[in-house]
Design a protein around this nucleic acid. Structure first.
Lengths: 212, 212
DNA sequence: GCCAAAATCAAACGAGCGTTTTAATCTCTC
DNA sequence: GAGAGATTAAAACGCTCGTTTGATTTTGGC
């Protein structure tokens, strides 16, 4: 009885963990139930037993990782109420990049989001409304403040998408980026990217400064 | 003999056409040979007969669409040799956007490229070297000229990726964009986006103007 | 210690996949 | 128009997929 052969951490949690990794790597369609249960050291019937079917596990994994990412990288973290718009933009870009590029604990959050966008499954609508639109609105508010009062809604939207596009590029096109400019995706480099995108976008938005 | 039941356009070409559409929509793994041959009105054995196997057809489709896109949207089209860098940037952004967003004839070019990037198949290395790196080098040259002599290689690379990121966003995240800001992806809107990205990036790159 | 409930397991099912086989059909030359 | 070669067609093979089944083991309250 010295070592227990079956440590019995509940199977459900192990399935969530393994499901996150496998779904992130292969996508919903590409991931196989057998690979997931193998990684989770569970029986092939476990997914259906605990989550009804493959899609049920996928939904649970999305829910799980999104809440985990929100807890780890909250956007209002040490965000001063009366901080200037440039500082708030930098905080947004930095947090957003860490969320989607972090390889750590809830590693799959970024990969899952990108997979979902590139190859939409039936849950994309929920993901957009619950996760992406709040982000987009937060960013739009900052941009609106930076451009000034004379900006149309379209101007704000286009600028916000330019900023999100710069960030998402490093996630979407990672296989290409790593081939074009070899290097690692560690925290230091993420900070470099965040600083660059913030400075780049701030200059782009300050058009009125020189005109006035 | 009034109407010929079998017009007999060669099956190989029809397979390339249908393969392009299906691979673009479902990706290499998600596409099925049976769906392709159904759309091509061919027998299920035709793919193996003409292209050895599914991957052979995929390679042929990539080759075919890439050359088609290069022919339809050449980057050096009406590009004046002594045109200024801002004009060359606008031409680049505009051409690049049309290449990846065009829904017309070689419609699948953009979709295929994005699919390949999000879910790399063994041919990604070739795609990067033959298609993407030349683009990236062309853009880097323009950016280098815009920033000025005091720019490091890293500055140029980061700026070039910011510009590509803005463009690719509209292709990568199209399902999200269409949910966030409803609208169509017609030629007029592509021009609006191209103008915005060019102006946005030009302001971001002209940092020296105010400092000097 | 017993027993119902929960959990795990091996095995198999039906469907769809890429591919192969084998035969039938078309096409073109002589 | 006969025959050789290219093309198409139908059927099946072997495999993997998600899921289900039915039996077995483990668990927890009495």
């Amino acid at each position: 009885m010295a070592t227990r052969k079956r440590p019995k951490p509940d199977t459900k949690a192990r399935l969530l963990q393994a499901g996150g990794e496998v779904f992130a790597r292969y996508g919903f369609r590409g991931a196989t139930v057998r690979r997931i249960v193998q990684k989770a050291k569970a029986n092939v019937a476990a997914v259906n037993y605990y989550f009804t079917d493959k899609e049920g596990l996928y939904l649970a994994v999305l829910e799980h990782t999104f809440t985990a990412a929100k807890r780890k990288y909250p956007f209002d973290l040490d965000m001063d109420e009366n901080a200037g718009a440039p500082e708030r933009l930098h905080a947004f870009v930095s947090t957003f990049l860490f969320r989607i590029l972090d390889e750590g604990r809830p590693a799959w959050h970024g990969k899952l989001m990108i997979r979902e966008i590139a190859d939409p499954s039936p849950v994309l609508d929920r993901v957009v409304e619950e996760t992406i639109r709040p982000l987009f609105n937060l960013l739009s508010g900052i941009v609106e403040e930076l451009i000034g009062p004379g900006a149309s809604d379209e101007d704000v939207q286009l600028a916000a998408m330019s900023i999100m596009g710069q960030c998402l590029f490093y996630r979407n096109s990672r296989p290409v980026v790593s081939r074009l400019v070899p290097g690692r995706y560690d925290a230091a480099w993420i900070q470099v990217i965040a600083d660059h995108i913030t400075a780049f976008s701030l200059r782009a938005l300050q058009k009125n400064k020189t005109e006035a």
